[in-house]
Amino acid sequence: MIEVRDLVVRFGDAPPAVAGVSFAVETGETFGLVGESGCGKSTVLRALAGLNTDYGGEVRLDGTVLPPHRPRGFFKRVQMVFQDPYGSLHPRQTIQAQLLEPLRNQGMTPPADAVGAALDSVGLPRTAAFRYPHQLSGGQRQRVAIARALMLQPEVLLLDEPTSALDVSVQAEILNLLMDLRAQRGLTYILVSHDLAVVAHMCHRIAVMQGGRIVDGFDAATLRAGTPTHPYTQELLAASEAYGEAPAG
């Protein structure tokens, strides 16, 4: 479905933020990118989404190389959900206006029940359409952000730390919602996170990034068993376990 080859992103004269990243994601798969701050995981996602057009290498969608300036039709197929639902929604537009914006950008006439159906699909009451973001909780806002990303019925969602700004009980609700939507619509996800537990829970395959490169890759079962071999992955796993849950077994 999506293929990334030798992706390089530079900011100024500094060493490249992403230094040659390649991976491929199948239809219906959830692919996780994990790493610590500054490893380049979000930069990869932003380049994929077309938010950063100044990259080297290739991004293919269904085998076709995408131009760095993404054509309008691209956004009908690929949408992004950002980390911070406080920052990613317009503070002075109603939820309804924000949900309709993707349709308007595509020059489409919204179907009569578009907003209501979108709110239903993410488990929000229909009255939320007339609210402003500040009238909603963090979890509700992230639901709105997900509903907005789904307005164009995309096939791929790019998820950048979708729950790291939320409380654990709300995180559980949003992760469940994302899993339900994946099952209902056959969505493909690329999930960026610093949290190994979230990635192990959601993803089929996982790549570990460090210093702008993918240093390790494995499937979810390997992560659950605690058997990735790369020293950096071991270090991450040990750190998550040392202060978090007990090791496997």
């Binding site: 654990v168 009980s169 995180q171 559980a172 609700e173 992760l175 469940n176 899993m179 949290d195 190994l196 537990a197 979230v198 192990a200 829970h201 959601m202 979810a220 992560l223 659950r224 068993a225 605690g226 796993l237 998550s240 376990e241 978090g244 849950e245 090791p247 496997a248």
Partner: peptide, 18 residues
């Protein structure tokens, strides 16, 4: 709260919601 934490080592279909 404890139940709603995802786990690295345990596969779950859904997380229990508080």
């Amino acid at each position: 709260l404890l139940a709603s934490l995802p786990s690295i080592h345990r596969a779950q279909d859904r997380l229990p919601v508080l």
